[in-house]
């Protein structure tokens, strides 16, 4: 996933930060803030809460820097924190809005996608961004996380396996099933559009 070439690796930066170098922390924030916002927005479907979650993730990095052990990749660690926080947020929403959602039904849920002006444009000549986002939102949580990490964050199967703390075979299966479900849902969307 990391195509960029940096002077210091993520692991070197976190080590420096653990030793008290605040500049290293700023560098890590700048490297990961946009990656994390993409992950959380696609997971939640909402930019406003997503930014808060990313900030909380990076705040946790600041306050819990000594919890990181150099045996793991830094990216795996930070995505695990972000993923857990996003799931907690979803659970919180479910608790608070369960009655509201049951009234409006599944299809009527609104997603606050920041690039609304672009969502009308077709991606790959097939689907709009909003259609894809809705289809992602309809995936079960464990499928959703796996497919976002793979196809949007472009992480390897091994990294996803570590982040989700499940065997490699389970990751492969989840990604495949998530993609098939997305394909079926979007096929229906395309049929209805015609």
């Amino acid at each position: 996933m990391a195509n960029e070439q940096f002077t210091y690796t993520d692991e070197e930066l976190i080590r420096r930060f653990q030793e008290g170098d605040e500049q290293a922390y700023t560098e890590l924030v700048n490297r990961y803030r946009n990656k994390l916002i993409n992950f959380v927005v696609r997971f939640l479907g909402d930019i406003n809460d997503a930014e808060d979650i990313v900030q909380d993730t990076l705040l946790k990095l600041y306050t819990h820097k000594h919890f990181y052990r150099s045996i793991a990749k830094f990216s795996t660690w930070i995505y695990t924190i972000a993923s857990n926080m996003a799931k907690t947020e979803l659970r919180k929403r479910k608790r608070h809005k369960v009655s509201f959602l049951s009234q409006i039904g599944r299809e009527e849920k609104d997603y606050d996608i920041p690039t609304e002006d672009k969502s009308g444009a077709l991606i790959e000549g097939q689907y709009t961004e909003l259609e894809i986002q809705r289809a992602i939102q309809n995936l079960p949580l464990h499928f959703r996380t796996a497919v976002i990490l793979r196809d949007i964050q472009e992480l390897s199967y091994e990294e996803i396996s570590k982040i989700l703390d499940v065997p490699l075979g389970t990751v492969k299966s989840r990604i495949n099933r998530a993609r098939i479900q997305l394909q079926q849902e979007l096929k229906d969307v395309r049929k209805n559009r015609r």
């Binding site: 803030r33 916002i37 696609r42 790959e124 894809i132 497919v147 196809d151 472009e154 993609r179 979007l186």
Partner: peptide, 13 residues
């Protein structure tokens, strides 16, 4: 689908 997911607009903070 895989191609479409890869080409989703990249968001920034």
């Amino acid at each position: 689908i895989v191609g479409a997911l890869n080409k989703l607009p990249k968001l920034t903070v």
